[in-house]
Design a protein around this nucleic acid. Structure first.
Lengths: 209, 209
DNA sequence: CGGAATCCTCTTCGATACTG
DNA sequence: CAGTATCGAAGAGGATTCCG
């Protein structure tokens, strides 16, 4: 059974033949946070049948976008090239994030993508350092180096500042509904390390541009 | 009948809820060339059922990404914001464009996207002018202004150079299988206007980067 | 001509149950 | 835990017909 194809000699169509099916780009998003197991993936892809997840993983391993080592899945360098597309699509969708409905899932790891579309290079010219977000049980890092950004969904670098909050607090801060100063005074936000880098981060990451 | 949704509070998921279904991004690609009628769209979306095309158009009009004036469909400014994502996805797919199989469709208008992912801003610092590609019956324009690129799938600006070729010739040139000089000597490629801008274009548009 | 609606078949998806 | 198997539901694809 051959995969369904658009049969077009077009770069966009070729990409969509590969990753355009339902769930596939969300699966890539999950792996942009770092290597994951089947079970981990299921959490961020709630509603996706296990058979479908299994099939997709096989297809993407076959296509050379994912590699499997023992029971750990991760993106290959080629697979990681999808990051640019994922971030572009997410940037388009950012204005659509209004209220969060009760039935909607949210995971702190998704900030690995959110940080990237919220990043303003022109405001980060002289920003340097590693910012670590500890939200609920998760850890997301942003590494700033001379106007460029790298992100990770796990503790990969030594942090210069650690920001700790629960998910609800973090979402309110991101939405601009809660003032960082107030949050800290209320004890809902804890800072360890460089306050200067923290203030820089508030300037550098901004959804409204 | 509510639209299917991923039910995730995530910018990527929100975008895919809107344009992640089969054919939708290819439909956007078609409209990136300029306004089109139902019949025109069917040509570039061969294999898509008329009912499906009709449904998708309605959904996208509803979502504010497309507007319909009389019988002409075109992207709204918000819809045009998808260009960045479409180009990023196509850039990813460019290395997958190997041989063109016999059953695969190709349309010269798709170069509106191809020119954008092939564009190297750093090589176009001092490039200025409008390049017009006349391939078979179609017209695609590229407007260079101080390191930036605009494209159109129709005659929108006064061209500084017009390049005329048939589709086969153009594909061979793009693939690097045919030397521009040879093509011209063989009469398969015709140039009218600024030869200097033509040479610039060869440097500025390059798939291998 | 430019679509919209219907009908029928086929594929894919989604949920659950089951197995190594 | 990491999948595989199964089956009903939903969506896609193609032909044809209807309508203004």
């Amino acid at each position: 059974m051959a995969r369904r194809s658009y049969h077009q000699y077009c770069a966009l169509a070729r990409t969509l033949d590969l990753v355009g099916e339902r769930w596939t780009l969300l699966l890539v998003r999950e792996l942009l946070s770092g290597p994951a197991r089947f079970k981990d993936l299921q959490v961020g892809l709630a509603g996706m049948g296990t058979n479908l997840l299994s099939d997709r993983l096989k297809e993407l391993v076959e296509a050379g976008l994912i590699e499997r080592e023992d029971r750990l899945y991760q993106l290959t360098p080629r697979g990681r090239e999808l990051e640019e597309s994922v971030v572009a699509l997410a940037r388009f969708g950012a204005p659509l994030l209004g209220e969060r409905s009760a039935q909607e899932l949210w995971r702190a790891e998704w900030n690995v993508v959110a940080l990237q579309y919220a990043f303003c290079p022109e405001r980060a010219k002289n920003a340097e350092g590693v910012i670590e977000y500890r939200i609920d049980e998760s850890c997301v890092q942003a590494k700033l180096t001379s106007g460029a950004l790298e992100t990770a969904g796990e503790a990969r670098w030594e942090p210069d500042v650690v920001i700790r909050a629960d998910g609800e607090t973090f979402l309110q801060l991101a939405a601009g509904e809660l003032d960082p100063k107030n949050a800290e005074e209320q004890g809902r936000l804890e800072l360890i390390g460089s306050r200067r880098l923290w203030r820089t981060s508030l300037r550098v990451f901004s959804v409204a541009r």
